[in-house]
């Protein structure tokens, strides 16, 4: 069964703790009033957690310039 560890939207934890990660899949386009375009709703996750419906297999570093 796929877990967060194998998901391309999950970046490493801030400390490098191998058991946790930061999920960056949730994002929204902002209103015209805002100067920036995108908001990213981060979530700290346990990498062993079962994958959610938005799971896509991959490694976050390969697409990091579009992730953060």
């Amino acid at each position: 069964m796929a877990t967060c560890k194998e998901c391309k939207f999950v970046t490493p934890s801030p400390t490098g703790d191998p058991s946790t990660g930061v999920c960056l899949v949730e994002r929204m386009q902002l209103a015209e009033t805002q100067q920036t375009k995108t908001a990213i709703k981060g979530k700290m996750v346990q990498k062993a957690t079962a994958a959610c419906p938005k799971f896509e297999a991959g490694e976050s570093w390969k697409d990091i310039k579009n992730l953060l």
Binding site: V22, L24, E26, R27, M28, L30, A31, T33, Q34, T36, A39, I40, K41, G42, L68
Partner: peptide, 18 residues
């Protein structure tokens, strides 16, 4: 930038993750 996605919506009219 990095802490934006860790911070919920705020009362200055900023969205969560901005």
């Amino acid at each position: 930038i990095v802490n934006g996605p860790k911070t919920a919506a705020t009362a200055n009219g900023r969205h969560a993750g901005e």
